[in-house]
Amino acid sequence: MKYCPHCGNLVREKANFCPSCGNALVETSHAQSVSDSNNQFKEIYNNATAKLNHYTGEEGAVKVNIVDLFSEVFKHHTKDEAKSIFIAGTETTTPALADVSDEWAKPWLFS
């Protein structure tokens, strides 16, 4: 089976053009196909992080280091550490805006 890389419809094995969208069907090597898939994943990832970043009032894609983001998951944490996450909105728990870190959070509690 062969699929059109432009529209995803099934095409004949020997076809040169897709009957659905009319685009030329170009033979690609496995390495080129993997490279194209990686580029497509990066584009989707960048678009997703850019949209999320836009909701925070910022612009552009964001690099997220998944290993760093989840680095606290397998470490031992006390119940007091967990409680301190949920205590918020008081004079002693709400930092000034200038004191809020712009580093990525490490969401160990929710794992």
Rank of each mutant, 00 (worst) to 15 (best):
D36H: 11
K42G: 02
F41Q: 10
E72F: 06
E59V: 14
S35E: 14
H54R: 07
G57M: 03
G57L: 04
E59P: 03
F70C: 08
E58S: 14
I44T: 12
I66S: 08
T78P: 00
S29Y: 04
S37I: 06
E72V: 01
Y45L: 10
N38M: 09
F41T: 12
N65T: 01
A48L: 13
V62D: 00
N53L: 00
N39F: 12
H77N: 02
E72A: 15
F70W: 09
G57V: 04
F70R: 04
V62S: 02
K79I: 07
H54C: 01
Y55R: 07
Q40M: 05
V26N: 11
Q32I: 03
S35N: 09
N65S: 11
D36S: 09
A50P: 09
G57D: 03
T78V: 05
H76G: 04
S29K: 02
H54T: 09
V62E: 01
V64M: 10
E58I: 00
S35M: 09
E43A: 15
A50L: 08
F41L: 15
E81S: 00
S37W: 05
K42H: 05
T56F: 15
T56G: 11
E27A: 13
D80E: 15
K63D: 08
E27D: 15
Q32L: 06
N53G: 02
K83E: 12
D36W: 07
T78Q: 05
S37E: 12
S29G: 03
F70H: 07
K51F: 13
Y45P: 08
G60V: 04
E58M: 05
D80M: 12
S71R: 10
T78R: 05
V62W: 01
K51L: 12
Y55L: 14
N65Y: 00
L69T: 14
K42F: 07
I44K: 11
V34R: 11
K51S: 11
L52N: 10
A31S: 13
H77G: 00
S29N: 00
G57C: 03
E81G: 02
S37L: 14
A50I: 06
H30V: 06
L69E: 03
F74N: 15
K51G: 08
V73Y: 06
Q32A: 12
K63P: 02
G60A: 02
K63Q: 07
H54E: 14
N47Q: 08
Y45R: 11
L52T: 04
D68N: 15
S33N: 09
T49D: 04
K75W: 05
N65Q: 02
N38C: 08
K63M: 02
D68Q: 12
E59M: 03
T49F: 00
S71Y: 01
F74P: 01
F74D: 15
A31P: 01
L69A: 09
F74I: 01
I66A: 12
I44W: 06
I44S: 12
E43R: 07
V73R: 07
V67K: 13
S35L: 11
A50K: 08
E43T: 15
N65P: 00
A48Q: 06
K42R: 11
K75A: 14
A82C: 01
T28S: 11
G57S: 03
E43Y: 07
E43K: 10
D68R: 13
V73A: 10
S33K: 14
V73P: 00
Q40Y: 07
N53P: 06
I66H: 06
A48I: 15
A48D: 03
F41D: 13
F41K: 11
H30F: 09
